[in-house]
Each structure stands twice: as structure tokens, then as C-alpha cells.
Amino acid sequence: MAPRNKYSVILPTYNERKNLPIIVWLLNDSFTKNGFEYEIIIVDDASPDNTAEIARQLQTAFPNRIILKQRSGKLGLGTAYVHGLQFATGNFVIIMDADFSHHPKFIPDMIRVQSTKDYDIVTGTRYSGKHGGVYGWDLKRKLVSKGANIFADTVLRPGVSDLTGSFRLYKKDVLEKVITKVQSKGYVFQMELMVLAKAMGYSVAEVPISFVDRVYGESKLGSSEIAEYATGVLSLWMRV
């Protein structure tokens, strides 16, 4: 029998005191129901709301499942993944948002799809499938999202329908190799990761996911975010 797969979920947190226990609960529920081995690595950027305290309570509630790594300040999402990756003991890594916009119930789907053809990466897509889609987006938000995706798709032609999505399963060694080459931060980070992985010849599969927009708190999308995104796509275009 092949050695058992283990899945490491990296959750970067900043002021997620409310969300963290529930997402951990949902993750545990989804993994244990399906009999998968897992661990959760929480990378907390010194949240003022003391997210770390909640994380320690969770360590007691879910023994041997949760690794807490604290950093001294808000150092950003990209470096949080690099940091968390050092402590991952699984052979697969899952990256997702900690705010319920990504539901752990899709992880078993991703794992099943991954095993069909031993894919290097499985990415969630909001743009296809019966269960794929969004909740809580108005027409403007959909227009901007779709427009941004078509723009990136036309310029970069990655062959992936949801380039900016951030709910993904990676083989750990693949993520380790790709992440060292990523230069951008923020919105562009996920996109660059995918475009680089594709350029390096890794295989990618897609799974439809539903995206429930921030249940607590606001997600921001203004003209400065759009400008940041556009320059990010173009700089990637020059590089790959």
C-alpha cells in the first residue's frame, strides 16, 4: 500500500478571531468525514484582536492538528505562505481564505480529482459547473471580476478559467519550487503562482467551487485595487 497522503492547510490570519474557530471546525469536519489525514498551519501576523489566543484554544480542542506560527507584524499574504510552508509535514498543501468565502466541503472533491491523473495542482473555479458560482455579488462586482479575468486570460492565456481564485491544492514540492519565483504581492500573488506553474509545465485541474463573499467584514474593491491588478497582469506579461 502506498504511504498515506497528508494534507497541510495553510491559513494566514490577521484579525480573524471570529472566523478562525469556525473555519477550523469546518475543515476538521470535512477531513474526518472523508477519512483524510490533515494538519492546519495558522500563520498569524500579530493580530491586534488576539487571534493567536483563539488558535491556542483550538489546539486544545483539536489535539495534534493545529500548528500555530506567530509573526511579529503584518508581513503580507505571500510571505505567510512561504513561512507556513516550512512547517508543513504533509505531501500536499491547501491554500484558502480563512473567511468562509471558501468552503472546506470542496476539499474532498479536489483530492479526488487530483488522484485521477496525479495532477500537480487542483484549483477551484467560480466560473463553471452546477455548484460553481458566487453569493453576495452585485452586477458591478460580477462585471469587474469577469472583466479582470478576461483581461488576464487574453494577455496571459494560462488555460485556467479562474486565475485570481485562491482556493487551491498543490503538491508540496511543486508549491515550494514555484513560490520561490513569485515576486508580486496582494491580488496578483495567486495569479502569478498559477501562471508560473503553468509556464513550468505543471499539470492543473479545476473543480467548481461556490464563493460566499465575506460573511463578516467587508471585501474591498476600488479603483486602486483595479489599477494594482492591471499593472500586475502587465508586469507578469512582460516576464513570462
Binding site: 466560473y127 460553481g132 453569493y135 455579488w137 460580477k142 471580476s145 460566499v212
Partner: peptide, 9 residues
């Protein structure tokens, strides 16, 4: 064709 998923919510 952007799907809405109120049932997921």
C-alpha cells in the same frame, strides 16, 4: 452565466 449560489450561503 455567472452563477448565483444562495443555497451555499
Amino acid at each position: 452565466t455567472f452563477n448565483d449560489v444562495p443555497e451555499a450561503h
